[in-house]
Design a binder for these strands. Sequence first.
DNA 1: GTCTATACGGCGATAGAC
DNA 2: GTCTATCGCCGTATAGAC
Lengths: 226, 226
Amino acid sequence: MPSSGKRSGSYNVATRGRLLDAAELLFAESGIDSVTLKEIAQKSGGNVGQIVYHFGQKEELVREVILRRAGVISADRIQLLDSYERLVGKGNVALEPVVRAFLDPYFERLESNDPGWRCYALFIGRNVWDRRLAPVIAEGFNPTAKRFIATIRTAVPALTEADSARAFQFLLSGLYGSTTNDTRFDSLVEETDDSGSADYNRYQQVLIPYVVGGIRAIGEMREAGA
Amino acid sequence: MPSSGKRSGSYNVATRGRLLDAAELLFAESGIDSVTLKEIAQKSGGNVGQIVYHFGQKEELVREVILRRAGVISADRIQLLDSYERLVGKGNVALEPVVRAFLDPYFERLESNDPGWRCYALFIGRNVWDRRLAPVIAEGFNPTAKRFIATIRTAVPALTEADSARAFQFLLSGLYGSTTNDTRFDSLVEETDDSGSADYNRYQQVLIPYVVGGIRAIGEMREAGA
DNA sequence: GTCTATACGGCGATAGAC
DNA sequence: GTCTATCGCCGTATAGAC
């Protein structure tokens, strides 16, 4: 990487981006392992050698697919939380705005024009708990996660630190369960007038009260002395 | 399949079981695709040919690993729900016992002597939303799921059918989030005195109030007119 | 009926020609 | 910076031993 950054070559950056886009799409459709490097190359209009050149091995390609958008979404979340804490004071946070600061940016991106975000959500949701991805997931998301775990506890002081971490894990599970699965939901609901496959908005509407109510209930249990 | 069932051969059933056990363990450790047939065969004390003979292809082996225990856990859940409904009357069910009827059998098996159940839970939790597994998962779990979705709605009548289905999906997500992830939880909690890696009981204690409180909150939102 | 031995096409990864 | 040749290993299929 000599002088001009993006320019030398102009190919470099563009090719990387196209390869990442293609990989993201195909990983979302079929999972990491079912997708071959050849398919990714074809989808991007390139060839296998380019992937090897730019990413070395498949694992690194996966890594960059994850981290590329993880940074963006994490910045959104932190920015919202910062703004809110500055307005109400760090010790005066309420639970629902904190939960919204975490969830809203995700749903907002899902409804944006860039369809890559929807692929990303499918891919991430289906692979969050994959052992092999744990280091990358942690690298991309743990700093923000720790911040939110601490803030949830400030909002609901009756929680222990472990309670708050588990509550956050439930929050994550609910989010990924909402954004990952179309087909199974459709097969569980008879009436079809409500199940517009990718209608994330409907999930968001029930997920937020669910999470807030759930976390409050844990706090109430602790206050009752359990 | 002629006369004697299990006997001709005694080998047949035992080999099948060993292969399924080995596959279950390895799938839980490393995921379906990372595990090779050779590894499964070695772990079971056999060879690749046995797998091909008994299951034809890897996909069918996966299928039988899933369905073997799905039937057992589903029967537990239905039996508990039936008993409860008979005692209080079908129209008088309360939310928490219904949630418990679904969650308790799972946690109970997790704490049983058979470590296969813990492998199964890790495997299922990491792969519930896998597209390729959707048909098998539906085959094994949907009948019970539909029953619980309907019963949750009886317990909280303010829910729409779609609400109840989404609530059930959150319930599932929370369960699988609890039983799937050791490492990430550990990396999010500083103090180590509470995080005895596989302490499912602690998850169960907070998951039940969380789910019940969350579903109630959705119902209250609907009653408030949203 | 149960299992072993062997062969085949396709994968990810590597090295090196252009 | 791009592409081809090659390697070892994978899942699968099959033919035949017991």
